[in-house]
Amino acid sequence: MDDPTRTEVEAALADATTARRALAARGNWLRTYLLVFAAGSVAVVLLIGLGGRRGATIAMMLWLFLVAAMSWWGVRQQVILRGHKRRSFLAFGGWGVLYGTTLLVGLYLFADQPAFWVPAAVITAAPLVLAACWPTSRSDGRRPASVPTA
């Protein structure tokens, strides 16, 4: 194998970096996925807390639709970024704890009180939003891929 020249090395690495970036960009769908669920969570919590029995029914239908639609969409994505499972687990795990606590406390102690349900709805969605906005890890924690201009 002949020694590659500097030009050959730079060209090969430039192409490699371009391909890497293009593929990684297609893995950013998780951000949209989590933000949609966050918005849905806010709506669901407000409907349950302030909408009475009808609101709770609508909330459940909305949530079922959201889960079905996002599952359908998510399973068709073509790239899974590193850390995807951990990020999803932490996001939905944190959401689940806050959601359960909010309903437990709110339905018993603060029924139909916007002063509780509005901030509670926002706080419940926080783990999903945080996970959506958290920077994705780049190359195993090393420097981000870049190729300088000649």
């Binding site: 593929l23 990684a24 970024l81 590193r82």
Partner: peptide, 10 residues
């Protein structure tokens, strides 16, 4: 290099 940025890709 492209695959090194992801867990898996189609």
């Amino acid at each position: 290099s492209a695959l090194s940025a992801v867990e898996k890709a189609e």
